[in-house]
């Protein structure tokens, strides 16, 4: 079920744009024209947008206005794109980052 707020007592009913299709980690999702990646995914119940590059802990939206970079994703191959500031385009391919190796963390010695 979509989490969109269709009726609002003060703001009125939601004017939905035309539906667009995009993928997140290979799965298909629908967004409406003008929605951000973060909003469209949350509307479909997706909260985890990436994992911490070193610890692997799950992360989602935190500030929703581009300050914190917690929602950064890869969009059509470009990394560090803020899902909260990026409007969905039809056919967009979005993916979460993965845990990255940290070979130099202990001065370059492998454990």
């Amino acid at each position: 079920m979509s989490q969109r707020i269709v009726q609002h007592p003060v703001l009125g009913s939601l004017v939905q744009g035309k539906p667009l299709h995009f993928t997140f980690n290979g799965d298909s999702y629908t967004a409406y024209e003008g929605e951000t990646i973060a909003a469209a995914l949350l509307a479909s119940g997706v909260r985890t947008l990436r994992v911490h590059e070193e610890k692997g802990t799950p992360r989602g939206i935190y500030c929703n206005i581009g300050h914190c970079y917690e929602c950064r994703v890869h969009v059509d191959g470009v990394p560090t794109v803020r899902a909260c500031m990026t409007v969905v385009k039809d056919g967009m391919q979005v993916s979460a980052g993965t845990v990255l190796p940290t070979p130099l963390k202990k001065g370059g010695h492998t454990s």
């Binding site: 609002h8 929605e35 909003a39 985890t48 947008l49 935190y62 206005i65 909260c84």
Partner: peptide, 23 residues
């Protein structure tokens, strides 16, 4: 507070009133 689903109150405000998605 790093768990997905934890957000700043301003984030929830924009998501609710501007993006019209329930947090």
């Amino acid at each position: 507070w790093t768990l997905p689903g934890v957000m700043s109150i301003g984030a929830a405000q924009v998501m609710t009133n501007v993006q019209r998605v329930r947090v």
